[in-house]
Amino acid sequence: MTQTIDTNTVKHVATLVRLGITDEEAQKFSGQFSSIIEYFNMLNEVDTENIVPASDIANAENILREDVVKPSMSREEFLRNAPQAEGGYVKVPTILGEE
């Protein structure tokens, strides 16, 4: 299976991961992605019929927390790293699609 990743696909995945990219960059990535994906297609050779994906194999037994409240971190400390804060809130510009 040969597949090329065209600039539209590059732009689509860039949107999915919220990355601003230019047309030139999309062009550049498109070429690189196609050869990398082509390389990945080597996995098609492997027979994985009846193979359980590794993500389903638990390494450890259940690790659960008791439902106990622990002290929270200080709000000042949290907000110190925030680019914008107001009245104890983190502030961001308008969110598109909301009134």
């Binding site: 696909t9 995945v13 990219i21 990535f29 992605f33 994906i37 994985t48 359980v52």
Partner: peptide, 28 residues
């Protein structure tokens, strides 16, 4: 940028089985 875009691609609708899931199986 390259890697997170390719990662989104490998997980996105229509490609998950061919890439992400396949890789997890070969990982086994």
């Amino acid at each position: 940028k390259r890697r997170i875009m390719l990662g989104a691609y490998a997980l996105s609708a229509g490609y998950y089985d061919a890439y992400y899931l396949k890789a997890q199986k070969v990982r086994t």
